[in-house]
Design a protein around this nucleic acid. Structure first.
Length: 594
RNA sequence: GGGACCGUAGUUCAGUUGGUUAGAACGCCGGCCUGUCAAGCCGGAGGUCGCGAGUUCGAGUCUCGUCGGUCCCGCCA
């Protein structure tokens, strides 16, 4: 190219008027007036309007005639001021034009599959197929530029706090527990496989044992599970681990980082310390372990009103050890029977609830739904105790605790969405603490780790490990922001005997523990310091910081819901030779389907 | 593994109860036009109605299957 840029397309201002400049970029849009042509020339820094005037530069004008959207050009000419009535207040460069005297066409673009000016102009599958075009859109450029800033802020924060950035292997040993591994076959050791890390958990604990007492890494992780709007099979974590610490040290470090990120990216000042909720309290009040605190609408205890009532369904629920809780939907008495039926259908379909009971507040009593099972005095008591106001709608769910609380929690989120209760300017971080250490898995009929098997049990509950493992609290914690689980971590077990005991509790035999985690158990015997850490879902953090609900909006080249890369066609078949080298033979059925 | 919604021109969509030649906007091509910034005006080209079967005298429309996308449940230590 002959004309190399002297400025970017977002740079020129009134003060540059008179300067001779060269700009390089893409033709974002063109407006042809016959003897006068306007281009908006775009690069990632912004847009500048370029004018081609037949009477000023005949050759450049003639070439510009034939150009169209997304052609790549270089233009030379003076910066000229716009007359007052021609100033475009919507553009930061709107007070000036660049009057082109020389034009070099760097590359002409074929007609586009969709408009780069408008992200909504194509379905997502088409945009993903031409992801490099979608990445030219303002929104995605903004998201990726912000993401880049966040990497830098994270690195400068942690290195400023004396953390070391250390890389850990991508080709590692497959371990049981947790998500399905992505496997990588070994050529040198045919029949054996590496696994891509679900997280660098064990490595960072080994780094603590090695004495690197403050470690962090911005690292890709891989989990072969089904996708969601906020979940990709490969994603990025900010992985952090510290030695000689307890929960308070971790919280302080994280609060410092999150505070700085929101200050720098959003200009929002967060409190120096974040509020904390125990897991139990979060479930009781919000029906979820990741509550969105930007709105109230808390779950309320309804059990006291069940016994004096005539509603036998709830009585039976309580008798069998279940829970009955309520949600007071402010001003929702206007909901029609159809609205309520829709909510009921949604809850039974997606949240395993058997039903959704309701009553409307009218006058000084309750009516509709199950109101007839509650006497006048009992209704008045409900209204007083639950602070029900005229025009409110009372939703009640009775079921096993595992169903009733999450279902009502889901209803809370849905009602907030419908009623527009979410203040999108607010940022509400909080810590969830005191998770249960173990959870009984019905399918495999054994206990599984709620967090992971290296999480330390709460000191007060260790004696319960053998008698009532389900009641043991862990030293795990989650950071939740606006209803998104942003980070999770724990104080780890640094005692080999306790770790051994945990493996046994999880139904991992001594032999298996030795085979799968022997290296960790051995390392714990060579002077392991007390340690703990946390891992951030980096993509989700970026989502919250740029204000999108879709993880694909913050990843340059994401996969579809079925884990395909529409642009390059991954995953794809490989040659017989490649398979042979790896000692792999495909199932006949798969060959047929190819 | 399961559920819901979607697939019509390059793109976004409309298309009535199953009925003549499947429309609009943007984009593209050609023409006019010297102050637009969603430029405007005139004209033109452009369709395997995702794919396959079925029902029917007749299918973009109904049924089944299949492929792809999105969202959700399960799953995600």
């Amino acid at each position: 190219m002959k004309l190399k840029r002297t400025h970017t397309c977002g740079q020129l201002r009134r003060g540059d008027v008179g300067a001779e400049v060269i700009l390089n970029g893409w033709i974002h849009s063109r407006r042809d007036h016959g003897g006068l042509i306007f281009f908006d020339l775009r690069d990632r820094y912004g847009k500048t309007q370029v004018i081609f005037d037949e009477s000023v530069a005949k050759a450049a004008f003639a070439k510009a005639k034939g150009l169209g959207m997304e052609d790549v050009i270089a233009v030379r000419g003076p910066v000229v001021a716009r007359s007052t009535e021609n100033i475009n207040p919507k553009m930061v460069t709107g007070e000036i034009d660049m009057s082109c005297t020389e034009l070099e066409v760097l590359n002409e673009a074929e007609p586009l599959p969709f408009l780069v000016t408008d992200r909504e102009s194509a379905n997502e599958d088409l945009r993903l197929t031409y992801r490099y075009l979608e990445l030219r859109t303002e929104q995605l450029q903004h998201n990726l530029i912000t993401r880049s800033k966040i990497y830098q802020l994270v690195r400068s924060y942690f290195t400023g706090e004396q953390f070391l950035e250390i890389e850990t292997p991508f080709l590692m040993k497959s371990t049981p527990e947790g998500a399905r591994d992505y496997l990588v076959p070994s050529r040198i050791h045919q029949g054996k496989f590496y696994a891509l890390p679900q997280s660098p958990q064990i490595y960072k604990q080994l780094l603590m044992i090695a004495g690197y007492d403050r470690y962090f890494q911005i690292v890709k992780c891989f989990r072969d599970e089904d996708l969601r709007a906020d979940r990709q099979p490969e994603f990025t974590q900010i992985d952090v681990e510290l030695s000689f610490v307890d929960e308070e040290d971790i919280f302080a470090i994280v609060e410092g980082l999150i505070g700085r990120l929101f200050k720098e990216i959003q200009g929002v000042q967060l409190p120096a310390a974040f509020p904390r909720l125990t897991h139990r309290e979060a479930m009781e009040r919000y029906g979820t372990d990741k509550p969105d605190l930007r709105y109230e609408l808390e779950l309320q205890e309804f059990a006291p009103f069940v016994e004096p009532s005539d509603f036998n369904v709830f009585k039976a629920v309580l008798k069998s050890g279940g829970r009955v809780k309520a949600l007071v939907a402010t001003g929702c008495a206007r909901y029609s029977r159809k609205d309520i039926d829709e909510l009921t259908a949604w809850l039974t379909r997606y949240h395993r609830a058997k039903g959704l009971a309701w009553m409307k507040a009218a006058g000084d009593g309750l009516e509709g739904g199950i109101a007839k099972f509650f006497g006048d005095d009992l209704q008045k008591e409900i209204i007083t105790q639950l602070d029900v106001k005229e025009g409110d709608l009372l939703f009640i769910i009775g079921d096993r605790a595992k169903v009733a609380l999450p279902a009502l929690g889901a209803l809370r989120v849905e009602l907030a969405r419908r009623e527009g209760l979410v203040n999108t300017d607010e940022v509400r971080p909080l810590w969830i603490t005191d998770f249960p250490l173990l959870e009984f898995d019905e399918e495999t009929q054994r206990h599984v780790a709620v967090h992971h098997p290296f999480t330390a049990p709460h000191a007060d509950d260790i004696q319960l490990l053998d008698t009532d493992p389900g009641q043991v609290r862990s030293r795990g914690y989650d950071l939740v922001i606006n209803g998104h689980e942003i980070a999770g971590g724990s104080i780890r077990i640094h005692d080999a005997n306790l770790q051994d005991r945990l493996f046994r509790l999880l139904g991992i035999s001594p032999d298996e523990a030795e085979a799968k985690f022997g290296f960790l158990l051995k390392a714990l015997r060579y002077g392991a310091p007390p340690h703990g850490g946390i891992a951030f879902g980096f993509d989700r953090l970026v989502m919250v910081l740029v204000g999108t609900g879709q993880i694909r909006d913050v990843i340059a080249f994401p996969k579809t819901t079925s884990a395909l890369s529409l642009m390059d066609g991954a995953p794809s078949e490989v040659s017989e030779e490649q398979l042979k080298e790896l000692g792999i033979r495909l199932d006949e059925k798969m060959k047929d389907s190819q």
